[in-house]
Amino acid sequence: MKRRHILQAAPALWLAGLPAARAQGYPDKPIKYIVPVAAGGGSDLVGRTVTDRWGRALGQSFVVENQGGGGGVIASQLAARAAPDGYTLMQGYVATHGTSPATRKLPYDPVKDFTPIGMIGATPNVLVVDANLPIKDFKEFVAWLGANKGKASYGSAGAGSLTHLTMELLKLQLKMPMVHIPYRGIAPAITDVIGGQTQAMFPGLAAALQHIRSNRLRPIAVTGRQRAPQIKDVPTLEELGLKNFDAMQWYGVVGPAGMPADIVGKLNTTLNQTLAAPDMREKLSAEAVEPQPMTPAAFGQYLQQDIQRWTQLVKAQNLKID
């Protein structure tokens, strides 16, 4: 009888020890890391900087695969369809898991089709104006808008982009009209603010910083809960009394839905250790990104809240995104 009981219990004991053994042996081969933009941009730099150090913490290398196109749709579909074994991860960001789900019908579900691993970090958007305008601060900006109703315009990196939606959020709260001029990318939009064709915009801090330092753009306010260390004298919109402006250009890591909890835990722990390295903040500062380590659960909640934020705005402003 005892022998029979032991034999019956053996499979259960083996299965109970499986997760620990699996996590201990993981990873035993390189991990594919999909970055949903072309090589060479800011998001690509963030991904390569983090995975280089993260791979050392895991004892295995990452193979970065750039999959641009479709605003991250192609990359997201590839990641969502991959085996949930921890060997295919993706750098989700505010477009793939924030603004695009709020503005477009996508061939993937940003929540149900993915496993949240952890946040990498975020950079604020900065409200800037043409430096030649008689605007020195936010109060003067609001007064100028009031005096130029129907005449003021703002540029964005494209319809439905974070630069577009952030300004629409500002318009909603200020109840001030501004004409939206969408561009194909952030660079031409900034060029036209500097040239006076448009008067304001909300670029990411990394894209705007060189123009702020050369006094060609004047910073008025930043998004986020804290002032940006690169422009410490510029207040946050929250400080100025506007709510829901903690929105940021964020980067995080997701995998396919259904990943084992033990592997997710190991990835999250080593990612957070990587972000805590003393020199990592300095490395990410090239893109004005501040590390923001989170648990998988906290990151998953963050994703859902970001999608909800922009979905509500699109409905409130009745935005039509082609």
Rank of each mutant, 00 (worst) to 15 (best):
L267M: 04
L267V: 02
M259K: 04
A187C: 12
L240E: 05
W250I: 08
P182E: 08
P177R: 04
R227Q: 01
N268Y: 06
Y251G: 14
R184Q: 14
G195L: 14
A277W: 11
A261P: 13
P188L: 05
N215I: 10
F202K: 11
V193G: 09
R184N: 14
M248S: 07
Y251L: 11
G224A: 13
M248C: 07
D262Q: 14
R216N: 07
Q249Y: 10
G255R: 00
Q197W: 14
G265N: 14
R216L: 03
L209P: 07
V222Y: 03
R216S: 09
L240K: 02
L205F: 11
W250Q: 04
L240S: 08
A247Q: 11
Q199H: 06
P260G: 07
K266T: 05
P182I: 12
A228W: 02
V193C: 13
T236S: 04
M178K: 05
V253F: 01
G204H: 02
L271N: 04
T198G: 10
H180G: 10
Q249K: 13
N244L: 12
G204D: 08
G241I: 12
A207S: 14
G241P: 08
A276V: 09
I181M: 15
K232R: 12
T236P: 01
A277Y: 13
N268I: 03
P235Q: 03
I186K: 10
G195R: 15
I194T: 05
T191A: 13
R216E: 07
F245Q: 00
S214W: 11
Q226S: 15
A208V: 01
G255S: 09
D262R: 15
T274F: 10
R213S: 11
L275N: 00
